[in-house]
Design a protein around this nucleic acid. Structure first.
Lengths: 341, 341
DNA sequence: AGTGGTCGCTAAACTGATTTAGCAGAGCAT
DNA sequence: ATGCTCTGCTAAATCAGTTTAGCGACCACT
């Protein structure tokens, strides 16, 4: 690969100057006293030879590689990972950097291996990403250089990027309130484990807090809260069936994520009820299925692309240690209506 | 990052030997005549100092970086990309390699930039991946070194990895035939563009061919074929509504992908029909929604993880130019039953 | 005694860039 | 004539490895 590339020495020779001169010109060094003519000759020679510097050689000397390690726990299982990576790739490209991506699959041995592989390649910094928003402990090996936590926090006071789930919770609740829903709002997806263990999830607690805050401000309380052991369609389905068996039917439902909402839709369909005429549904994440459902599911979007981008920016441009909260925009779709009658 | 690491010179000094000796021992060079004791001293010194070689320095000399470029058109928009990447990451790790990932977003400027960034970093080879199975033209710049096409072919006779869509088509059709469906099988998702332009899709043509082959062998012809401008849920929905308006209702439907099938489910639900009692459904891709649907959708899975893995193997272990076809396993789920009555 | 071969190891070149230290010549003042 | 500064440029060191060429000691054989 890249066998017969021109070297700096070739450029210098062709320009009739020293390697030193060529290097300085091509790097745009200030304060050098090389003549305008020398500049031109070097540029011309580099152009003619199609010169591209050998980055291995450069980084051997400078200890900079223009390469960022992107270490995540699980890339593949969640479709959001792609957006996180895409945002990071974009921001990296804008800054002439490149991403070395690995995943640890939650395995300590793999993680160890991955981090060593990155450090051996002299990466300029590490983005340590979690696929579920949570608190974690970063492996000490990477603390030698710049680190940014993506979709995660730690107790080390490292800079981090998180979605603003609290505000998303308020947005979801306020959206229903503004439509006129009051005393018949139900919540699907309570989960003690997710709410109480920050190493499992930060989103559940923050979303719940935001929802309660907004409802409290309006002096409204929830009609019902359904607990779910997981946030998967089948659990949303079961929860919604439970709700429909109660004496008072909700006029609107907040689901803790779109997969729960998907399950809820299935239960509503089977019960012969229509969204949003009979029941409004609002949710979190903006999973692709949210747009495919009939009617489209209103949801607050996880801004993964923005987050990936922000992480690279913090890493390269420097960051304070306040977590950087990225807003979750509301995607208004057809699943919302004022309460019936 | 990685500031005060021990160098080979440190190891040699501590072992009381030359850099040459240390290098040879640590690389396990055959035919060297260094004593067993020298070996031990070097290993001990390396261990004690926590020595890890500087790969930039090594690759400057050897022109090998143990790094593979993974260039794809669009990573983010499809959830499958994650699996492709995961498979490649796994195989790369097993061979002590690492992946430099970029995406071009289908933009020629970005592609140019990405490829130069990879070549500047002296990658050992390039995996050029497409997110939709198709034929493409590879940029000449990467032809200087090993290349493997992933989920794509080209006319350059480069090694490539593709899903075996033809066989998957036969599998889907045979599965229905074995259940006893004969004269009432419908197909949703015909699409001239996808079938005829290999630069748009190879899957449509191959799947269709496999289906026709299997039906032809059984002397069965399709009850109906629905054309769809795209393979999205809304088109599957419309197609299924069309089918239900015809005089003879199908007993089984083959959908060209899971998103179409998802739309078909929606239409069936609205029409008050049940899967699989009234109509069986089988499809392609094994999108995550296939498992979430009620009842679960039977589908032939795109083996993306296997494909990513295979691409790395072909790249590093050498490959012939026959396209490497990876089988698409059938995921049997509840959407299948014998025809009614 | 001289020659040749093997053993165990090392000095130095080499990869391709950056960077430090400094040289030769011109212009000017003393 | 001497010393000084400024200009425009270069030689050589450096980064951390790999690789080539070869050296001295020892032994065996003629």
């Amino acid at each position: 690969m890249g066998s017969n590339r021109a070297t700096l020495a070739d450029v210098a020779r062709r320009a009739g100057l020293s390697k030193t001169a060529a290097s300085m010109v091509l790097n745009g060094r200030e304060g050098t006293r090389l003549s305008a003519e020398a500049h031109q000759r070097v540029f011309a020679a580099a152009e003619e030879l199609g010169y591209r510097p050998n980055l291995a050689a450069r980084s051997l000397r400078t200890r900079k590689t223009a390469t960022i390690a992107f270490v995540s726990d699980i890339v593949a299982t969640t479709r959001f990972a792609g957006d996180l990576i895409r945002g990071a790739l974009d921001a990296a490209r804008e800054r002439d950097h490149v991403l070395l991506i690995t995943e640890t699959q939650g395995d300590a041995t793999f993680e160890q291996y991955a981090i060593e592989a990155m450090l051996d390649r002299q990466v300029d910094g590490v983005i340590y990403a979690a696929m579920a928003t949570r608190r974690l402990t970063v492996p000490p090996a990477i603390l030698g250089g710049p680190v940014v936590l993506l979709n995660a926090t730690s107790s080390d006071g490292l800079p981090s990027v998180l979605p603003d789930d609290d505000r998303a919770g308020r947005t979801a609740a306020n959206t229903l309130l503004e439509l006129g829903h009051h005393d018949a709002i139900a919540l699907i997806g309570r989960n003690r484990l997710k709410e109480e263990d920050p190493e499992v999830s930060l989103a559940a607690r923050a979303r719940l807090h935001g929802i309660r805050q907004a409802l409290g401000d309006a002096d409204v309380s929830l009609l019902a809260e359904c607990f779910c052991t997981e946030w998967l369609p089948e659990h949303g389905y079961a929860a919604m069936r439970g709700l429909l068996n109660r004496s008072k039917r909700p006029s609107a439902v907040i689901c803790m994520n779109d997969r729960l909402a998907f399950g809820a839709y299935q239960a509503l369909g089977e019960a012969g009820l229509t969204v949003p005429e009979d029941i409004s549904v609002i949710s979190f994440d903006d999973d692709p299925i949210a747009a495919w459902l009939r009617p489209g599911l209103a949801t607050t979007a996880l801004p993964h692309e923005q987050m990936g981008r922000r992480a690279v920016e913090l890493l390269l441009d420097g960051a304070d240690t306040e977590p950087s909260l990225v807003p979750m925009p509301l995607r208004r779709r057809k699943s919302l209506a004022p309460p019936a009658e």
